[in-house]
Design a protein around this nucleic acid. Structure first.
Length: 490
RNA sequence: GCGACAGUCGUCCAGUUUGGUCUAGGACAUCAGAUUGCCAAUCUGGUAACCCGGGUUCAAAUCCCGGCUGUCGCACCA
């Protein structure tokens, strides 16, 4: 069974990803960098997302700023809701969520928004003590998960965005107008988000600075079942869990008719997401769309499904699929005093669009793909093979001279020069041929071209397949065609 | 954020109990040369580390204090 430690070891040994600022002792936790190989995987995953979700659905992609003004987060609700009331024990220093502590102690629900003073009063009145050491609590404070930044000499308050989508919302009016948008319209963005996690952990899985690929689908709430392109996905099989315990496998069409999913729009985009992950190499028997209950949903979501993948450390949330209704556009409309309504051309009505989002965690997805692709071949010397899809592999093909004499290196270099612009290629003549095959397999290179003496006679090379170790002879002139075909994913 | 444990070449580990022989050792990986020639070959040589700061001491990888990081548990996860 592949586990987190094996992936971590491979990542460090091969430089897929590693701690940020690692040569300094004061490097903070929760920040990780992608090395050359990891970056290539990341870029290719994003390319696949663009192809299978953004382009497939005709979405518009933007690239927005990471620092945004205070007003944005007043409107989005993050200033009010993205904070936790916390109390610290004066004895042992343990920190607790004040609202939860109070709820548990007095057996009554306490809203998160309860003012600090009220929380302090309840704690005092009921003489609530620290569960760990029975010590006294200090005063309630608010912990905001957003990173605050100061702009210019006057230190104007702004924030690093805690989710990329707020850029999409504030840009929506101009994008909709200038791009002649029609509802439903998906607007997509790849970018970084920042959250001041209390306890970042497990490398790529809980970061303070991380990549999101988000899609916000703007739609007319009265026409959620008016979606002709739903027909494309009627038969797509979805694994859906309503309770987190049992999972049922149903087609998108059935899920709709049986009321498992609320409308065509939601069903269609979940299916799109499902198709996309099916092509990443993740084991689709170990995934599920889990519907979130009332307590689990984010403050802006009225319907929420998490796309989760089973890994060695349990179910891992890769994508949050939230029906945000008009929470965001209404908020931005009120705070900015801009009218964000648009005309739905299908019936010429004026609507404030609702939003359904697919908020994908890129870093976690990369981890899940690595773990599901990691393979130890016990029949062949316990070789480690990363069975990445060719279109996600950091390098598509290695070019290796069988030996470093008789002009084989020179011939190999020529082939490498010819291929490297179109394909991610890697030339290697160091060590035995077997060693070089193994090196390539570990980073998921699907093909190895070996140049031998026969090449000099008839211009053919052997192409070795990573997973089967089988080799076939191919004419040098046919290599590009062969490699191009390998990159097709349907 | 709290608690427990830990931190030595790229990776894994030895050395810390009992401070001195550690000028820090090995394996794998990597680099160079030779030999070989289709699945981690062999030989020779090389590169490369005591998390950071302070303290104790004649002497610190080793003991003490603080910080940082990691793992696990609790809490958190918009």
């Amino acid at each position: 069974m592949t586990n987190y430690d094996q992936i971590m070891k491979l990542a460090l040994e091969k430089g897929f990803y590693f701690p940020s600022c690692e040569i300094y002792a004061d490097a903070p936790a929760g920040f990780w960098e992608y090395g050359p190989t990891g970056l290539k995987i990341k870029n290719k995953l994003v390319d696949l997302w663009r192809k299978e979700i953004v382009r497939r659905d005709g979405m518009l992609e933007i690239d927005g700023c990471q620092i945004m003004s205070k007003s944005v987060f007043e409107a989005s609700g993050h200033l009010g809701n993205f904070t936790d009331p916390i109390v610290k024990c004066t004895g042992c220093g343990s920190t607790f969520r004040a609202d939860r502590l109070v709820s548990e102690s007095i057996g009554k629900d306490i809203p998160e928004r309860t003012p600090n003073d009220d929380l302090d009063a309840i704690i005092g009145r009921n003489n609530i003590r620290c569960p760990s050491c029975k010590g006294q609590f200090g005063r309630t404070t608010r912990f905001n998960m957003m990173f605050k930044v100061e702009i210019g000499p006057s230190a104007e308050m702004a924030f690093l965005r805690p989710e990329t989508c707020q850029t999409i919302f504030v840009d929506f009016p101009r994008v909709y107008k200038t791009m002649r948008g029609k509802l439903p319209l998906g607007v997509a963005q790849l970018g970084k988000s920042f959250r001041n996690e209390i306890a970042p952990r497990q490398s790529l899985l809980r970061l303070r600075e991380f990549y999101q690929a988000e899609v916000e689908v703007f739609c007319n709430p009265h026409r959620l079942n008016d979606l002709p392109r739903f027909e494309e996905v009627t038969d797509t099989l979805l694994r859906i869990s309503k309770d987190g315990a049992s999972t049922q496998e149903v087609t998108a069409g059935d899920a709709l008719s049986r009321g498992i999913l609320p409308n065509k729009l939601v069903a269609y985009y979940l299916a799109l997401l499902n198709d996309f992950y099916g092509k990443t190499g993740i084991d689709m028997h170990r995934i599920r769309f889990r519907q979130l209950g009332d307590e689990e949903r984010a403050f802006y979501a009225s319907i929420a499904f998490d796309f989760e993948v089973e890994t060695s450390i349990g179910w891992l949330e890769l994508v949050a699929c939230n029906y945000r209704s008009d929470h965001d556009l209404k908020g931005h409309s009120m705070v900015s005093k801009e009218n964000l309504e648009v005309i739905d051309p299908s019936d010429q009505s004026k609507v404030l669009p609702h939003v359904f989002e697919l908020s994908m965690g890129i870093d976690r997805s990369i981890y899940a793909i690595l773990e599901h692709s990691y393979f130890e071949d016990f029949e062949h010397d316990d070789r480690v093979v990363l069975k990445l899809q060719p279109y996600l592999a950091p390098v598509l093909v290695g070019i290796l001279p069988l030996v470093n004499k008789d002009g084989l290196s020179e011939r190999s270099q020529m082939i490498y020069s010819d291929l490297k612009r179109e394909f991610d290629s890697y030339y290697d003549d160091s060590g035995s041929i077997g060693r070089r095959y193994r090196r390539l397999e570990q980073i998921g290179v699907p093909f190895a071209i070996t140049v031998d003496k026969v090449t000099l006679q008839d211009d053919s090379v052997t192409v070795r397949q990573r997973d089967t170790m089988k080799q076939e002879r191919i004419k040098v002139n046919d290599l590009k065609k062969y490699l191009r075909e390998s990159l097709q994913n349907r």
